[in-house]
């Protein structure tokens, strides 16, 4: 495996997806969960751009990455609004304290 641009970017993609998943799994704070999701989505975004470049269709890759950016921003907005509402309603951001179904 050589240190070509494409290999480096692939390692970055795998690393970002792994770090994002790790962040989602280990966080107790609702806002930190959103941070983990954002990190994982950035990996997917670079993957689209790299795939477009490898196929010779950079513009299609860019177009797909743009879709991911739009969806990602909406997810962040709604998730942060939910986190703020949860904080107002329950007084905490701890996801362990929000398990109201468990007694």
């Amino acid at each position: 495996m050589t240190f070509s641009t494409q290999n480096i970017v692939m390692v970055v993609i795998i690393g970002l997806l792994g770090i994002g998943l790790y962040g989602v799994l280990i966080s107790r704070n609702l806002i930190k969960v959103v941070v983990g999701l954002q990190v994982a989505v950035k990996g997917a975004m670079i993957a689209f751009v790299l795939a477009g470049r490898l196929n010779g269709k950079v513009d299609l890759g860019q177009s797909m990455a743009l879709t991911v950016i739009v969806a990602d921003t909406i997810v962040a907005v709604v998730a942060l609004a939910l986190a703020v509402q949860v904080r107002r309603k329950f007084g905490t951001l701890d996801i362990k304290s929000l398990t109201t179904l468990r007694r």
Binding site: V11, V12, G15, L16, G20, I26, G36
Partner: peptide, 12 residues
Amino acid sequence: GAGILACALLAV
């Protein structure tokens, strides 16, 4: 690439 991974890990 190294910077991206380091910053992402620090953010998490």
